[in-house]
Structures are given as C-alpha cells and as structure tokens.
Design a protein around this nucleic acid. Structure first.
Lengths: 326, 326
DNA sequence: CGAAGTTACGGATGCCGTAATGATG
DNA sequence: CATCATTACGGCATCCGTAACTTCG
C-alpha cells in the first residue's frame, strides 16, 4: 500500500469516479492512476470501484470503507506536515479562510488586520462563496476554516463552533414614513416592498420564519447575496432593507437610517467550521481566539474531539457566545 | 512522505532509538533506514531524533508529535488491509491472542473450540507470557487481543474491557486438618505454608491485600505462574494452595479438595484489551461475544471510541459482568 | 465515432544492499 | 577499539509518461 495509491482513489472518488478528471487535478497521466488502482485492488484483494464496462460507476461496500480510512490517512499525513512546520524555526505558512461576503466585508477586516500585524509571515487566502460552497471548501481541505451563518447542517465532515450571535437592522432611505414610528412591528415592515438577502445567505431563513410566525409574507422586490447591493437598492428607493447589524456602518452609510429590529426576529448565529481531525497550527488557534474570544485553544481542542452533535452543544452551552452590537 | 519512512521512524523509536535494531527487525539494511530518516527530516524541515554525536538519544518535541501521528497512520493502513480481508470473499484470516497461562489453560479451551468450529479457515495464534508482556504484544499489534487480570494499568494504548469476575478456591491435599472447618478465615489459612501465584499474575495483588487487611502475612513457600505447578506442590504436601476458581477441575483434580473462599477476598476481574483504533473483523467481534456475552459488537464499538477511562467505566457499569462459578 | 479505461513499452527516478568512512564512548 | 550512524556507489525494481488498444454509449 502506498500513499499515492490512496491519493489516487481518493481523488477519483472526489471527481465523481472519473480517472481522467483525477489525472488532470493531480497533474499526471491517466494510465498511471489506472494502473495503481488496479495494483492496490490486487494487493488488497477487493475491488474498490464498481465498473460497468469501462466506466467507474460507484464504490463497492468495501470501497466505501476503504475510502473513508484512506481519507483519514491522507489527512493525518497533511497533519504531519503541519506539525513539522509548527516546530521548524520559520513561522511561515498560510491561513486559508472560506467566508461569505458579509463576513469578509464587515466582520473580518479588523480581525485580519491585527492578525497580519502579529503574523506578517503568514500568507492569508480568502475564498468567497455561498455558504454551501464554503463548507465544501473546508471539507476538502482547500480552506482551513469555513465561516458562515447558514448551511451548517450539511457539514458532518466539519466541526462547527459558534462564534457570535447577531440580529438585523432595518434600513430606511433618508426620508421614510417609518422613521416616525416608535415601536416597529412585523406588519409595519411588511407594508413596504423589501430588499434583503437571497435565500441561503446570512440568516434569510430566520428572517422568513419571523414574518411567517405572524402570518405575514412581505413582498421582497430585490434579493442579493451581500449588503452592499441591498443598500444600493434602498438608496434608489426601491424598497426598505433588512441586513445584518454588522453590515451597517454609521459613517459610510450616513445617507441611510438604521433601525434596530432585534426584538422582531430570532438571533442568528455565525459559525466557524474546521475539518474534523485537522491539525491546527499555533497561529490558527490565535486566529480563532481573535475572531471569537471564547474559542480558546482548550475549547477548540475539546470541540474537535466531540463525536456527537449533542456533545458539542453541551460544550458550548456552558460558554458565553458574544452578541454583535451596532 | 512515504509510508516506509514512517515505518522506519516508528520502529527506530520502538527499539529504543536504535537504527541498527530497527534494521534487524525490518529485515533490511541500516543505511537504507538511516538515509530515509534523513530524507524525511529534510522534507519536513525538522529533526525527529535527537542525536548526540552518532547516537540517537531521544525524540525532539516535534519528533514526539510526529511519531504519534505516524503511529496512527500505520495503524490505519493495517486497518485498510483488515477491511479488505473482511470484504474479500474468502473468510480466511488469523486471530492472534496474547494470554496468560490461566486463561489459555482453563478458560479459553471451550471458547476456542466453538470458535474454530465456526471459523475453520481462521488461523489461531496464542502468545503466552506475563501480563506485562501480553499488554506489550497487543500494543505493538502482534496480537489482536490481550487477555489478562493484572497489569491493566499500563495499557494506555489499549482499550481494556471487563470480561468476567472471579474469586479463589483453597486447594487442600486429600487429608488436611482444615477440611473439617466449616467457616474458614484468613487466619486459618495463614497458619499453613502457602503455594500460590507469583506476584503480578492472576490476581496475586488482591490476594495479598486480603491478608494484609487482617494484619496477616502468610508464609508463601512456593510461587508459580500457573495453577498446574501450584497443584503439583500441593499434592506433594509442601503446603496448601490458593488458585483461581477457574483453575480447579473437579474431575481431573479429584485427588485434591477445593474449598470456596470467595467470602475472604475481593473479586478480581479479567480484562480483554484491544489496540485503540484497531479495525476489528467480523470474526473478532464474534470471538469477543463468545468469550464474554456482554461484549456485543455495539458495546465494543462504543468502548473503543471512549477517550477517557471514566467514560469506559460508565459504559461498563451499566452492564452485567458475569461471575465465574465453579 | 468519441470518450473513457486498460494494456504495452521505454526511460528515468529512486530505493535497497554492500562496502567504506567517520565519529563516539 | 568496538559500536553505531553516515556517505558512496552500483544494481534493480518501480513508477510515470507516451502510444496503441478496447469497449461502451
């Protein structure tokens, strides 16, 4: 058994059972992969892939288990390299984040600023995408961390840890009837055309839930994946906006009015996800602690050894998850 | 990084930091190992071993972590092979047990008999040794299971599961004053020269504890590692014997008298140990269940994922551990 | 007939074994 | 001076890449 063979089967499986695609990704020729897979199957005495004619159509039961273990082995080999880097004198390395627009535009800048000051040698990579894409990137190991509010459910390969809780603000144009209201209700908002996040982004689900609890379904005229677009349409007078409170900047958005509506909706939680079993270098722990003070090295380590969701929830129920305030 | 390199550093570390010894074990030449270690250290950018001159004297901090991960990787590679065997049509394989004399002579025979009837293709290997050696064998992966009563403390690489509890019988020659006594006490026994197990075997520690609680220290004239030897000396009239109740066979030992003395001593527990993280094949689960009915596949799986001793104890406190009766 | 995996074969890399060297206690 | 790790070097296996072949949609 060789590590390459494991990389091969792993990549072939990742690429939807395509040897050709795997060869492209791994910068090598198909026949080599093909042959090594045959050799591995011969050595182990089982076929890993189901072949229908000349096509790989899936994994055998044995293949599934083998791939699972192969994945762990490859992860640990990566960990070896991380450990080595950690102990080698040079403090170089890279931190790869997968985040949504809301995080990278409004939440992360100050945190990253102090991080790069502290670790000037570390290369920082930011991958941006939809919550689902973000999870995928971290699960694949392309990104070290995934930061998102949604789609935490489909992340069984990741350990998701709560970072902070937040709620929404209503964005009104400079002049708007609602600005007179003292206590805004769901119905008040639903009376106007709405501009907010597309479904699947930045707590949109909780937002919809809040309205439907009151039997309301507001007319959403524009949806966007990020708050900047939403603000633009509010400025144009297309409708009133609802964005995460992190996304309102009193200075730069002085041409808009923000009204706190945290009494109307459930708080959302932003999570950070780490690949289960990954080795975290010292600066990664520091990044986590800088992002969410309660995520100390000890807490993170404990979280990463949790096997059940319940265990994780118990761990974090004892901690204070910060509230993001305007 | 290659798997061989990991095997090399692993074996060197196991052999007390000796490249020469590792080469012998691995049936290869020293220089190859030496070179591969150098290459690995170069690739990772850290030294793994501390060299004082030309001698390896220990592990660097990085080396310790690296070896830990390397061990896991190698274990999982073994697991790969086990998985493959499990799924390959042939049900061949081997089961390797490391046990003490007491187990292999008195407890295991009926269990093994039915096991080999059920799995005629499986080769059975029995390693016999002191409890400490047994633990060692299982920890190294030479044996699949370690079965012992003592030395369970030094087994942090193994998951130890309780199998059954047992107590002792007093062995008297055909004619002996004590045979008249109705209720035998510690003092009664201590009045005669004693033949029993050597320290470190088959619950000797609990035996000594039982006497010293009553301020007694019996005169032990002969100690042996197994009950057959003990019986032989009792037959010679050298003294009276104390052996585990499993070791008395009413038929074959009809020239001796056995007196139950379970009211005098704490019950001992016999444990079975599995290497943490090992992959167990179907027939191995069956062996466990045959040996100790409460060790079902589910229980064993749970036990093997316990991280703390406390967790293990909690798991088994809910189960009935059988009592071995004469 | 095109796409995908397997077989065939040549070249280069890399590993292992023997022998020699260096360093240490 | 004996022991042990490292260096030097040659043979050999292995792996990879190109090219031809086969099979299925």
């Amino acid at each position: 058994v060789k590590l390459q063979q494991l990389r091969y089967i792993w990549q072939v499986s990742r690429q939807g059972m395509s040897v050709t695609a795997a060869a492209r990704i791994l910068h090598t020729a198909q026949p080599g992969i093909s042959k090594q897979i045959l050799l591995l199957e011969e050595e182990l005495g089982v076929s890993i892939f189901v072949r229908s004619g000349k096509h790989f159509t899936g994994l055998t039961p044995a293949g599934e288990k083998i791939l699972e273990v192969a994945g762990e082995i490859l992860l640990q080999v990566d960990n070896l390299k991380g450990i080595a880097k950690e102990f080698s004198a040079d403090d170089s390395g890279s931190l790869s984040l997968a985040t949504t627009h809301t995080q990278s535009r409004y939440v992360l800048p100050p945190i990253i600023k102090s991080f790069v000051e502290r670790y000037p040698q570390i290369n920082l990579h930011m991958h941006q995408g939809s919550p689902a894409q973000i999870i995928e990137l971290a699960a694949k190991g392309v990104a070290d961390f995934a930061i998102a509010t949604e789609a935490t459910a489909l992340a069984d390969e990741l350990v998701m840890m709560p970072c902070y809780r937040w709620n929404r603000v209503l964005l009104l144009p400079k002049v708007h009837p609602l600005q007179e209201k003292k206590h805004i209700t769901h119905a008040d908002i639903a009376a106007y055309p709405l501009v907010t996040y597309v479904s699947g982004f930045t707590g949109r689900a909780q937002l919809d839930a809040g309205f439907s609890e009151h039997g309301l379904s507001p007319r959403v005229v524009v949806t966007a994946a990020d708050a900047d677009v939403i603000k633009t349409y509010v400025r144009l007078g297309i409708g009133i906006g609802i964005v995460a409170c992190m996304a309102f900047d009193a200075e730069k958005d002085s041409d808009l009015q923000a009204v706190d509506i945290s009494h109307l909706f459930d708080f959302s939680t932003t999570w950070i996800g780490v690949r289960r079993g990954a080795y975290l270098r010292g600066f990664m722990y520091d990044f986590l602690a800088g992002f969410a003070p309660h995520l100390t090295q000890e807490v993170v380590r404990q979280a990463m050894t949790c096997r059940t969701q319940a265990e994780l929830e118990e761990l974090f129920s004892e901690l204070d998850i910060p509230l993001h305030q305007r």
